[in-house]
Design a protein around this nucleic acid. Sequence first.
DNA 1: TTGTAAGCGTTATCAG
DNA 2: CTGATAACGCTTACAA
Lengths: 351, 351
Amino acid sequence: MTGIKDVASRAGVSIATVSNVINNRKPVSPELRERVCEAIEALNYEVNPVGRGLKSNRTNQVGVIVPFFNQVFFPAILRGIQEAGEKYGFQLLVFETGGNMEKERAHVRFLQHAWIDGIVLASFANRENISEREYIRSLGHIRNGRKKIPVVTLENALDPGLDAVAIDNEKAAARAVAHLLELGHKQIAHIAGPERLQTGKYRRIGFQNTLLEAGVHPDTRLIEEGDYSPSGGYRCAERLLEKKLPFTAVFAANDQMAIGAMRAFMDRGLRIPEDVAVIGMDNNFPSTLTSPALSSIDIPKYEMGRQAMELLAARVENPERPPEVRSLDTKLIVRKSTSPKGDDSWELHNW
Amino acid sequence: MTGIKDVASRAGVSIATVSNVINNRKPVSPELRERVCEAIEALNYEVNPVGRGLKSNRTNQVGVIVPFFNQVFFPAILRGIQEAGEKYGFQLLVFETGGNMEKERAHVRFLQHAWIDGIVLASFANRENISEREYIRSLGHIRNGRKKIPVVTLENALDPGLDAVAIDNEKAAARAVAHLLELGHKQIAHIAGPERLQTGKYRRIGFQNTLLEAGVHPDTRLIEEGDYSPSGGYRCAERLLEKKLPFTAVFAANDQMAIGAMRAFMDRGLRIPEDVAVIGMDNNFPSTLTSPALSSIDIPKYEMGRQAMELLAARVENPERPPEVRSLDTKLIVRKSTSPKGDDSWELHNW
DNA sequence: TTGTAAGCGTTATCAG
DNA sequence: CTGATAACGCTTACAA
């Protein structure tokens, strides 16, 4: 089993000394230190994290809860989390919710008892819902015995008491709409994300406010709510067309829905961008592959994951620090789906 | 801290009884069982996995090592692993190697000492390399003390002693080439995967053998080795063109390279499939989005992950069972990049 | 059927 | 500076 005892006996010291050498907690004489290191080397010993965790109340494991693995958005974030985690010595326990709140709660509950050191959470909770609001509040007070388990949320600041790496969804949506307005579009439809989600809600608000500020009255009939999936976007586009209301551009709350919508338009013989301009959000690589390529608002996904882990590590280090919400910047990417002068090169890296 | 002791004292029994109720190891009288359950309920108790792991030598955690998160291929597999893992009560500790063997070894080494119950591994090891061959052999004997840690490999049977969920790479490649031959192509180029990888090697062998069997002598100058990335595929296509050797079709060892190659051809004014037909392998969803859409060989990714976890669970249950290698079936998907009659609908689900 | 008590591998306290 | 030894939360002989 080659445990600390074996190292101790081989080095001819007590296990306490071995522990001290390993953890640099108390000074150890150079001579003994040398003997211990030699023994560790020779026996190929590595600390048993279970035993350590039992005593030290730390496992160096971080729980990560995301809605989906099989999408392009979250894997990119996961990379950032993982690489930063490696830097801080954290392993990742990853969980998928499929957008199901019951599963999300179950995962959180499990992690609470799993003695992990923190949670990175991309939540599907709805702040407007009373029961979920309760849940959100509870996230700020997850504790396993006397140990508080910090939670960092992704994409938006779910609760003022929680660390978060967010983007300004309103501003991001405004960027997309401003782009369409600049191109001369006045009748702009919106394929919204689920109203229950912060991202859906604030992107929609950004859409409406930007139109208002430009003196265009937003017609709510030109808003269709989707589920962030390509097929959902397809159906939203169909519903928009069925209304026979004129529109010359569509802002979809994510790339997946935008791509679904593009396909629906194309299937009906509409030309993009001549008949309908389309812009999405997230700037995922598949959006560069379609013809026309999809304009989008870039979200720094890797960076979002990286900084989330950074915040978590900082809080594990110092649980008393005030909650920090980082807002990452977004960027307009113009491709052919809105402008003939747009980019149409394919993203050939990082996938 | 609400531990087993609290439950015991609330129920007025010993901790042993609580443990027996939880684990169903020894019979407990209905009456006490009831009291214990009530206490567990009331205190919202959940077993501390660290304490349990220390004693029982199990953590219910499985290590998963994949080359990349940010690709479309592995996230799909990860889903299958996760969902099956949930069924068997396993959590996933996931690691990314970036295709770096040093990292892969380090992760395996870490997991060996992390007291996980098993490893699902998508390895980058090369069987032809002596040192790596040694490493591959060692995978069959990973043990933490007296406990053997089982390893299941993905994509190919790395070692006869290991469980694996594989596909028949030769046969899959043969499918692709046979399709091109049927379309009348004789001069077929191959953008190969890294020769050091099993997948690269056997897809290449499948390519060559199928040509030979069809009476076409494969010209090795028409083979370029890429790195499975889109940009790598792009460069391979450029190199093929520079040779000025005639070819009318290309089989790329994965979709990413095929897409890169398509772009290279299109950038030079070649029409697909009229001037060059292109087929890939893996059948990832982005391949449906390009114009023309990419023909491919479908690999059941989700199923691969699911069955890997199934094998692992079976082995944890019974370490003595003989190694099992499952070979999953592949399927030809014809799209416009090889045939005008091919499919060109977009994949609008599962991403 | 139930309880007592001995570990599992580590860290931390405290006495030498 | 070093070494016994007592936890940590749980499982499991073994005793009752």
